[in-house]
Each structure stands twice: as structure tokens, then as C-alpha cells.
Design a protein around this nucleic acid. Sequence first.
DNA 1: CGAAGGTTTGATGGCGTTCAATAAGAGTGG
DNA 2: CCACTCTTATTGAACGCCATCAAACCTTCG
Lengths: 248, 248
Amino acid sequence: MKEVKSAFNVSCKNCGLQKVCFPTGLRREDVDRLDDIVDRRSPLKKGQHLFEASDKFSALFAIRAGVIKLYSFTDSGEEIVHGFYLPGDVLGIDALGSKQHQYSAVALDTTSVCTLPFEKFTELTESIPNLNQQMLNAISKEVLDGRMHSELLIRRNADQRVAQFVWNMSERYRNRGYASDEFRLSILHRDVAVYLGLTPETVSRILAKFHAENIVTWKKKEVMIHDMQRLMHIAGVHSSCDSCKATA
Amino acid sequence: MKEVKSAFNVSCKNCGLQKVCFPTGLRREDVDRLDDIVDRRSPLKKGQHLFEASDKFSALFAIRAGVIKLYSFTDSGEEIVHGFYLPGDVLGIDALGSKQHQYSAVALDTTSVCTLPFEKFTELTESIPNLNQQMLNAISKEVLDGRMHSELLIRRNADQRVAQFVWNMSERYRNRGYASDEFRLSILHRDVAVYLGLTPETVSRILAKFHAENIVTWKKKEVMIHDMQRLMHIAGVHSSCDSCKATA
DNA sequence: CGAAGGTTTGATGGCGTTCAATAAGAGTGG
DNA sequence: CCACTCTTATTGAACGCCATCAAACCTTCG
């Protein structure tokens, strides 16, 4: 099952995201065995779906590069954006119970993904004890992310929501070893607005204000944070060690 | 490890909630083995905590009777209510990753709980294959509940939120075999308000309106639903089979 | 019984939505 | 490469929902 390597087809062993996918670390031989079951397809183009709501669940996915938006629609047809998944994030957990995807996942940019067939993954779990805990970590992260999202939607005004979103993205890139004060973000303002429970107009106005006050500039998929302190202050991130918590 | 039985100390085998705790069903001998590891303490009184944020995680909990509120505080000291747990619900999943509770759980009424020591539970998992899937179901439910909460907080006005909350509670009681149009609910309006991202005043006003329009009466912990159709309509639950979905 | 906390009701104001119209990008085909 | 179209972003004005503040009433519990 060993395959030819390419830019989009690097083994877990040589993947820079190993620490993100498996934070507590697996033994080298265990990573090799994981490699054997991982399926690496050609990258998704912008607008292509990784899966759609009601699809049968057969695998978990780890993002290698790009961005995925997880979304669904309410009974009345409004879109709900549940989250954005960056390199190193695991996708598909919502379907573990019903074996059927509850939401849809679409690429917002060229995105490459590692596929973990769930059957084989479960078998591996029996022989790699640590893998089960890794799984629990990923699941737990999913639950906590959901709670964070709810928290953001309750009693935080529009300024705070936008600031927290930008800061959160910055932290996530930092944890992956990228620059945290300047990064590319292929997410439409419209999608951000839906995620934050706001209208595009409101988000636009707030970003204009942040730009005028020289806190954050977000133009043409390029985000630049000029004043991290004030950004964190607006976001309501007071405790000095929150970045540590986020890393955990 | 077999114990004397009492009203608050019934084995899983004889527990009416078995279908809720283990929806897909376990074999009789497996339930017996579960029984052996379950710890049944004396009930919690109103106001007592099952666990608190930052407590070490050592067990999952299944509610047998009563109500538990899961909550935490923001950096700025505001309370966040993440959810209410009814008989048959599983609590403690948020701590699976970090082995440390992230939120606090307090009894809103006299509440009895089954304790599942996680170590022993994990061991059992190896010999009862179906148990692992039960676990995944519980986790998945936790994720989906969180998403439902977010969904409720986005672009739903106060009327819709309150209606959806009452309807949801009604459904949950119905799924447990209780009356769905008349039930006791030991939750303060204040806690409901925080959960819904509203103020107590707003919730009070809306309940007064629902009462005046003869849709729902909620006085002194007694909820009566007089017009389920209109309640569902306000809640934005249009599809006729949503009760089925909720059961799944 | 008295105190503390929860609920109800009313008046006022602010924040974010809504509607509308323009500007700016992105994608397509000539 | 430019013209054309479609989607997204920006900016302005006005309205409405819900928070806020305040005061009275009601429960609960020591």
C-alpha cells in the first residue's frame, strides 16, 4: 500500500502536522502503521465537497492544507456555519454516532485531506492503545469548540465577536507554526458573518473601524494584525495565559 | 460488589432508563457486568455539585432522576449555561480529552446519579464490543446538542428561542416515556434565560404572552402545553417528523 | 418573621438588522 | 487583454427588538 510521494502526498512520518494531528505523540512504528491505512486523494478544488449532509459515514478526515467550512441549513432554509477547519484539524466526528453525516463540508480553497477509513482505524485502535486517547482528544476538542462557539454567541456584542474570531484564527495559525500577525485567510466575510450570527454589513462596518483604528487590516484574503494587545482586549481575552490554554 | 437495593439504588438490569442509557441494547450478561462497576451514591441535594471546573476527571455520570445544570463563567465573570441534563443523559464527556472537567455541574433539584468509573469502563469496553459504540453515541449526542445550542442562538428571536426550549424539554420527556404536554421542570427562569442568551425579563415577558395566548403555561415549576401545534410553529419546527429525528 | 433572591411589569435607549444603492472583485468567454 | 456578468463588499438611513434600569411583588428558607 506504500505510495509514490508528492507535494500533496507526504507520509505521516514526514508530515509537519504530526504534532497537531497526534499532539501527545505516537511511537515511530505506530505512525508507520497509520501511514498504511491513510488514503491521500488529489486535493479538493474550491467549492468541492468533502462530504454532504446525509452522506454515509465511512472515514474521518484530517486536513493537510487549505480550509474546510462545515455548514448546514435550518428548517427555514437559512445557512448555519458551524466552523472552519484548518490544517491538522479532524473532520467527521459529528457522524460517529449515527454513521451518517449531519452537516456538509466544502473546500473554501484548494484543500488536501488525509482520509482515515474508520473500520481500519478502529482495528488499529486495538493494537495501538495510545490511539484511542488521541481519538478522545479530537472528540473532546470538537465538543469544546462547539461550546466556545455558543459562548461567543451569548452576550458578546458584534465588536467582540469579530475581534475574537480574528484572534482565534491568529492563535490557530500560531499553534501550527505560522506567523500569527500576518496570514492568508480564504474565508469570505459573508461566511464569517453567518458563523458569528451577524450580517455581512455589520462585519464589514466593524472591520472598517478596526482598520481605521489601526488594529486589524483584512483586505483581499490577507489579514494583518497591527495591535494584538488591543485586539485581545476587545475580544475579551483578559488572562495573560490564554494562549497557553488554547495550545492545550 | 452487589448492593442492597432501594428506591435510589436499582440495578441497570431493572432500570427503566436502560433504553435511554443504552439505546441500541446490550446483551443481558453485559448489562450485569456493567452493573458491577456502577457506583450509586446517595442522591445530591439541590445546590450540590456533581463536579466542578478543574476537578480531576475520573468517571462518567448517568442521571437517574432529577436535573443537572452544566455551566461555567466567562473571563469577565458572566455565567454561561451550557445545558440541562435529564434522566438517562450522560455527563462528563467534556473532560475525556484533558482528563480534567472544563465546566461545573450542579443539581437543580434532588438528583440521583450513576457513576461509571472511567478506568473500569474502558476495561469493559474491550470485552463488550457494543459498549464502545454506545460511548460514541453518547459523545456524538453531546456534539450535536452543542451545535443545536449554537443554532438556537443564531438568528432566532426571543420568541422562537423560548418556544424551542419548551418544545425541546417536552420532547425529551416524551422520549423518556413521560407526558409531553404536562411536566414538572425544576429550572429557574433565570437559568433558562442565561442558556438562551436572553435576560430574565425577556423570558418572563414571553412566557406571559404565551400564557395569555393559551399556548403554554409555566408557573411554579409546572409546565403545561395547551397548543403544541402553535408552539412548534413558533419554535420553527416545521417538518412533521422532527420528533422522529429527535428520538434517533 | 425577616431577609435574600427570583419574578413581573413598565419606560427608555442602543445596537444591530433591514432595505437600498453603489463599488469592487472574481470568473468567463471573446 | 478587455468586456461582460455575477457574486461579494461597502456605505448610508431608518426601524425594531431586546437590554437596561427601576420598582413592586412574590417565594423560599433560615
